[in-house]
């Protein structure tokens, strides 16, 4: 009899663990789907800029895990011809629709208290189907129950096998400046 009881208890453990994980996990998750990612390429001949207002980000404050995802086709250019070229010729958005980052915060931060931190995140950075392990530094600001993530970094085109033909070589910077601004709010169930 005792043995059967033991088996029943063992069998219910995973279910309880899952429940707990979900209950705790959800309250510790912060996310956004309206994050702002901008990039610019500056050369003496031409400045190219684009903005993505639909970037997704999610942060697990208990583990420091962070994921960012955006659709290349959500980048809006003031010049639509450039937008078409960006998707068709450079990013090949049909083949490689998203840019992603999946990693972990390098510093342990107490997300329950307001404050500002200089930190960095290390993980897999994927653009144009090419994944690089990168450490990207930025700022974290915790205020009014929201977490702001801000980061400026560069993406070298050669790292991600983004070809620029010779005729437009001088018009496109070899390193693209990226600015990311995400305001994460608690995930509600």
């Amino acid at each position: 009899m005792k043995r059967y009881f033991f088996v029943v208890v063992i069998l219910t453990i995973p279910a309880v663990l899952c429940q707990m994980g979900e209950a705790f996990g959800q309250s510790l998750m912060y996310s956004t789907s309206t994050g702002n990612t901008r990039f610019s390429s500056e050369t003496p001949l031409e400045n190219i800029k684009a903005e993505n207002k639909k970037s997704q980000a999610i942060l697990n404050t208990s583990t420091g895990e962070l994921a960012i995802r955006m659709n290349m086709r959500d980048f809006v250019f003031p010049n639509k011809l450039m937008q078409e070229h960006f998707n068709e010729n450079y990013m090949e958005s049909e083949k490689y629709p998203t840019g992603t980052f999946s990693g972990k915060m390098d510093k342990v931060i107490d997300y329950s208290k307001d404050g500002e931190y200089e930190t960095s995140a290390t993980g897999k950075f994927t653009v144009h189907g090419v994944t690089k392990t990168r450490t990207i530094s930025g700022k974290i600001k915790i205020e009014d129950g929201k977490i702001s993530v801000n980061s400026d970094f560069q993406v070298p085109l050669a790292d991600h096998k983004i070809d620029v033909p010779e005729i437009v070589f001088v018009k496109i910077a070899q390193k693209i400046d990226v600015k990311a601004q995400y305001v994460l709010v608690p995930v509600k169930k």
Binding site: C18, Q56, I58, E65, T100
Partner: peptide, 22 residues
Amino acid sequence: FIFFPVITYAQDDLLSQLEKQD
């Protein structure tokens, strides 16, 4: 067998959660 549900839960990482939402 007992911990199988836990393992699958862990595999459902943050990035695939974002993908699912989108």
